[in-house]
Design a protein around this nucleic acid. Sequence first.
DNA 1: TATGTTATATAACATCTGTTATATAACATA
DNA 2: TATGTTATATAACAGATGTTATATAACATA
Lengths: 190, 190
Amino acid sequence: MGPKVKFTREHIIDAAFDIAQKEGIDGISMRKIADKMGSSVAPIYQNFKNVDELNEALMERIIGISRQLLMEESTGNPFRDIGIASLRFAVEYSVIFKDLLLKSGKYLQGYDEKMMPVLIEEMQKDPQLNGFNVEELKTILLKMRIFQIGLSIMAANGLLPKDCSKQDMMDILSSTADDVIISAKLRRGL
Amino acid sequence: MGPKVKFTREHIIDAAFDIAQKEGIDGISMRKIADKMGSSVAPIYQNFKNVDELNEALMERIIGISRQLLMEESTGNPFRDIGIASLRFAVEYSVIFKDLLLKSGKYLQGYDEKMMPVLIEEMQKDPQLNGFNVEELKTILLKMRIFQIGLSIMAANGLLPKDCSKQDMMDILSSTADDVIISAKLRRGL
DNA sequence: TATGTTATATAACATCTGTTATATAACATA
DNA sequence: TATGTTATATAACAGATGTTATATAACATA
């Protein structure tokens, strides 16, 4: 009952994502999305109540992509996986990554709070980290989270040395992880 | 010759800075600045050719503030000073700090490139860092820069543990600096 | 075929933006 | 006092924005 649907919800979010990736989330407008799809704004308002609802859907899409990158990186060492997945996201979707960090600190905060216990549990299984109590593990994790976010931000901003490849980034990530762990062991006298 | 000046350049930049601090740099508009000053937009256009020129002046103001924070933190150890000053800026002017990192990667890039040789030189004087060649010092510096930016971003976003005081942040900054240096020494067999 | 439903296009509205033309009024100087 | 200069206010313009009222046309079904 009714004409064929030419512009689906997914279609619209795709277009919005494309614009966000190039011009930033604030670069999105209803007309730009419509132009990108070769339509008017009507299909957008057919699918979304207003611009806020569309932004919400876009955010879900972004989160989905970051989750997918994390799944693709699954080596059983979540400590490492999260670092690399976040780095990949920062490099491959740099504009959106920056916006995400800028605008939705809330999402990241919830994410961190949810991931923390899981990672601590995972670290307790790691033989390399034997002998540390939970407080010490938390400090190690925090240091690594800080470093990993710093690395991602700098990568997304082109602030790393020009000749710094993705492999170099991953190397410096794991090298610093070693630094932190080795020093923690020394402090403990292990 | 002419009526008294009620709204100076500095006045205008002050108002713009206030708005930027609360709503972000994109939150600025000519009318908002005028409203904040209790004037019309005329004085703004009297002092600035257009909005771009105003933004440039605002950026200079921001850079000036960050420089001032750095001066206030001068203990003779530029390595530490830069870390703490940047952290203070991130905490005290969090919205602007995020915008700065997001929008003007160019400025930061130039800043880093200018600071790098100075810091390396400074590190070579540091007895704690004796025995490292320039390449190794560069790696240490890069790791610290990454960590410091990560810490600043997380502080500005409220992503650090709730009970994390400024002192805690500074402690974790210097603790990680130690980690990196100690591990580098171990690697070298010093 | 006729009808109801709905996906889409168009155009208008209100509001925000930067910018500018014009008018006003304050002040220094002749 | 008269004049020139200029700081300021006002209002308008053009363009972008979100939103909506209306019209059109495609499709399923009776």
